[in-house]
């Protein structure tokens, strides 16, 4: 059954590919068990003539959330800072990653790339020298915790490293799926409408970090940064903002400094 129309088995559609060419790290394994993830249900039930009711009382996304917790524990134990990057298509997620990785030369960085199709983003990341794996979701509109679990098993992650998970470009669906990340980072670019936080509140509610990208284009577009931040704060008063441009590097030092500080806080 596919994620959009119910046509075939989604497991057959999801692929994990490491782009060919020079590999900085050999493919390794994360020894983490995700067995016993499905919970049971209670057996209290009422009877009538032909049917009975079984109480289940389980969150619909409990399986995803349990795998996300396994991922989170793994990241914690290995001092890996995992960031889940979410945005509309075209906000500049991959360009931000390229710039971030090439600027953080002393820090081990790895990337899980999520897209419906193609290896393009993974190939771009590979050029930076960072270990990367591409998850193609087929028709699926978001990454889930199980996909990240499998992807991380296939990547070789150094202890005390930074893991970027670039979600499928979609400002709606990825909001509901915990991947085990430390921070959900929502990215908006100034070529979009500054009212996006109000139009897509679920995502801005779920995130705790907000990057406003392409600020070098501000003179050419009708985008009011203060208004955008105000709209976003109305949805989520706890958001932390970074205003930057991945192409001109404007504001990038503050973002890099925050990442470095966050990494320094991780236990060894």
């Amino acid at each position: 059954m596919c994620d959009s129309c119910g046509c075939v088995n989604p497991e057959e559609q999801i692929t994990y590919k490491i782009p060919e060419g020079k590999s900085e790290n050999p493919v390794g394994h994360v020894h983490e068990s995700n067995s016993n993830l499905t919970g049971g249900h209670s057996h209290s039930h009422s009877h009538d003539n032909h049917s009975r009711t079984i109480q289940i009382e389980q969150d619909v996304l409990s399986k995803n959330d349990q795998i996300a917790q396994v991922n989170r524990k793994y990241f914690d134990r290995h001092s890996i800072l995992a960031l889940n990057l979410v945005s509309s298509p075209g906000s500049g997620k991959t360009t931000i990653l390229e710039k971030t990785i090439s600027s953080l030369k002393d820090l081990p960085v790895a990337v899980v790339e999520g897209d419906q199709q193609t290896l393009r983003d993974a190939e771009r990341i590979k050029e930076t020298g960072a270990p990367v794996i591409q998850v193609n979701t087929g028709t699926g509109c978001h990454l889930d915790a199980g996909m990240v679990h499998t992807a991380v098993e296939k990547l070789s992650l150094d202890k005390k490293s930074l893991l970027f998970i670039e979600n499928v470009g979609n400002l709606v669906c990825p909001a509901l799926f915990d991947l085990g990340e430390a921070h959900k980072v929502v990215i908006i670019s100034v070529t979009e409408g500054d009212d996006k936080p109000q139009k897509y509140p679920t995502m801005f509610q779920a995130a705790d970090i907000c990057l406003i990208n392409k600020i070098d284009l501000l003179p050419y577009v009708n985008f009011d940064i203060d208004r955008c931040k105000e709209y976003a704060r109305q949805v989520n008063s706890g958001l932390t903002f970074f205003e930057l441009s991945a192409t001109s590097a404007q504001g990038f030092d503050i973002w890099l400094k925050w990442l470095q500080q966050r990494m320094d806080k991780l236990s060894t």
């Binding site: 596919c2 959009s4 249900h41 389980q58 399986k63 709606v172 669906c173």
Partner: peptide
């Protein structure tokens, strides 16, 4: 359309519970 994922999770949980009850 994340509702498809949600629906699939519901079917999976419900079917497993039904199976346990025979």
């Amino acid at each position: 359309m994340h509702e498809m994922s949600i629906a699939m999770n519901i079917v999976e949980l419900a079917s497993a519970a039904a199976h346990d009850e025979g």
